[in-house]
Amino acid sequence: MGPSGSGKSTLLHCAAGLDRPTSGQVLLSGTSLPGMSENRLTRLRRERVGFVFQAYNLLSALTVQDNIAMPLRLSGTALDPAWAEEVVRRVGMADRLHHRPAELSGGQQQRVAIARALITRPDLVMADEPTGALDTRSGEQVLSLLRDTVAALGQAVLMVTHDPVAATYAQRVLFLADGRLVDALEKPSPAAVAERMSRLGE
């Protein structure tokens, strides 16, 4: 969390190998990213990082099933039917596999995007304002789903959000200001997050 211009997107881009840091290290499960070639970084992102965005970025011509399987198709990896069934069940989209995105609500589309992010069993899921385009109820469902993937699957999730309530779904909140890490809260409450955010400009 942090105000606009604090470095949240830059941090996310560096963590995903989309941007190269001018100094320091970026390690993903012990793998150093900055020295990698673009081809290796692309392969690493495809196989070891899942992405969930505010805009769902689903392919409108494809069914839910095909959207979820797209990362595997791009990497030439075979689909594990048991894992696919587990992922689809967890996101609650088993009865929508043959629908297209236009036939789904915003919350359902974001569930598909989460399933797509999980299908490769990534080391890390990066969620950039994943509830920004959703109403309160749908947003809570998506946050609960992300929280459940951490608890049930041991999945690591790094989320950027402006919403103090969304931040409380996290185990730990990191605060950025002017490109620097300035504070952290463990198991935060909405009030504690809001109060700390109000002082970031000090």
Rank of each mutant, 00 (worst) to 15 (best):
A184P: 12
A55E: 15
R116M: 02
A94G: 14
A191Q: 14
D80A: 05
D19A: 11
N57H: 15
Q65I: 06
L11N: 03
A84L: 14
L97E: 11
G106N: 01
T149L: 04
T168S: 10
C14N: 14
K187A: 15
Q109V: 01
G179N: 11
L12N: 06
Y169D: 09
D128I: 07
L58S: 13
M1R: 00
N57A: 12
L104V: 07
G2P: 04
H162Y: 02
D19I: 03
T10H: 05
F51P: 05
L118N: 05
A170T: 01
E129Q: 02
S37F: 10
F53Y: 07
L59A: 13
A94H: 10
D178G: 05
V150F: 04
G154V: 08
L74A: 12
A191E: 14
N57R: 15
V52H: 07
R46V: 07
V150W: 10
S6G: 03
T22I: 14
R43T: 09
T149V: 12
G76R: 02
T31H: 13
D19E: 13
L134R: 08
S4V: 03
P71D: 01
K8A: 13
T42A: 15
S138W: 00
G201A: 15
V125N: 07
G2H: 04
D163S: 15
D163L: 06
A16G: 13
A184G: 06
G2F: 03
A94P: 09
L27W: 11
R100C: 10
R20Q: 09
R180E: 13
L124D: 09
T120G: 00
S189P: 05
L146A: 07
N39S: 13
Q54H: 09
P188E: 06
Y56I: 03
W83R: 00
L72Q: 06
Q141H: 01
E195A: 10
D19Q: 12
A127S: 04
Q109D: 05
G154F: 02
P3V: 03
R199A: 12
F51A: 11
A78G: 13
S60H: 14
M197S: 08
A78I: 00
E140I: 06
R111W: 09
S9G: 06
A151T: 14
V52L: 09
P3R: 01
V49K: 07
G50I: 03
D80I: 01
A166C: 10
A15M: 12
L145P: 08
Q65W: 15
S138V: 08
A152G: 08
Q108S: 04
E186I: 11
L74D: 08
L12R: 10
V52I: 13
R147Q: 14
L185E: 08
L185T: 03
S37D: 12
E47D: 07
A117T: 02
Q171P: 05
P3N: 00
V87R: 01
Y56R: 10
S138K: 01
D128K: 00
D95I: 02
L158G: 02
T31M: 14
M159N: 11
M126W: 04
R137D: 02
T42M: 12
L58Y: 13
S29Q: 14
A55I: 15
G92V: 04
V157C: 06
T77Y: 05
V52W: 07
D163C: 01
P21S: 12
H99N: 10
L146F: 01
M1K: 05
L181T: 00
A177F: 13
P34C: 11
I68R: 02
R172L: 11
R90G: 00
R48Q: 08
R48W: 02
E38R: 14
